[in-house]
């Protein structure tokens, strides 16, 4: 994954709450088939706006993220497959 190594991208589970970003790349290969399908169904795709809104109370897991116009809850382990580029403030 060359894109994953770009300095200005980070994994979604590292994105601070309240920072707007967009998705640069998703490593579908590390996700189970069903999980990948559900993320696609939620609208996860390159170029889509994304923002972490809330973190779960125990171990900061799961995450509530806004993807496009929809808010979804996903676990940290799955968020790690999504690379994002934070938008410059």
């Amino acid at each position: 994954m060359t894109k994953a190594n770009l300095p200005d991208t980070l994994a979604l589970d590292q994105l601070a709450v309240g920072v707007r970003a967009h998705i640069s790349d998703i490593d579908w290969s590390i996700l189970a088939v069903g999980d990948a399908l559900r993320l696609k169904n939620f609208g996860f795709d390159e170029g889509v706006a994304i923002e972490a809104l809330h973190l779960g109370p125990f171990g900061r897991d799961p995450l509530a993220v806004k993807v496009g116009r929809m808010t979804v809850a996903i676990r940290r382990a799955h968020a790690a497959a999504v690379r994002v580029v934070p938008l410059a403030a």
């Binding site: 069903g34 939620f42 979804v72 996903i74």
Partner: peptide, 9 residues
């Protein structure tokens, strides 16, 4: 294996 949790809010 560990399951998953994905839900629309």
């Amino acid at each position: 294996t560990g399951g998953s949790f994905m839900m629309e809010m």
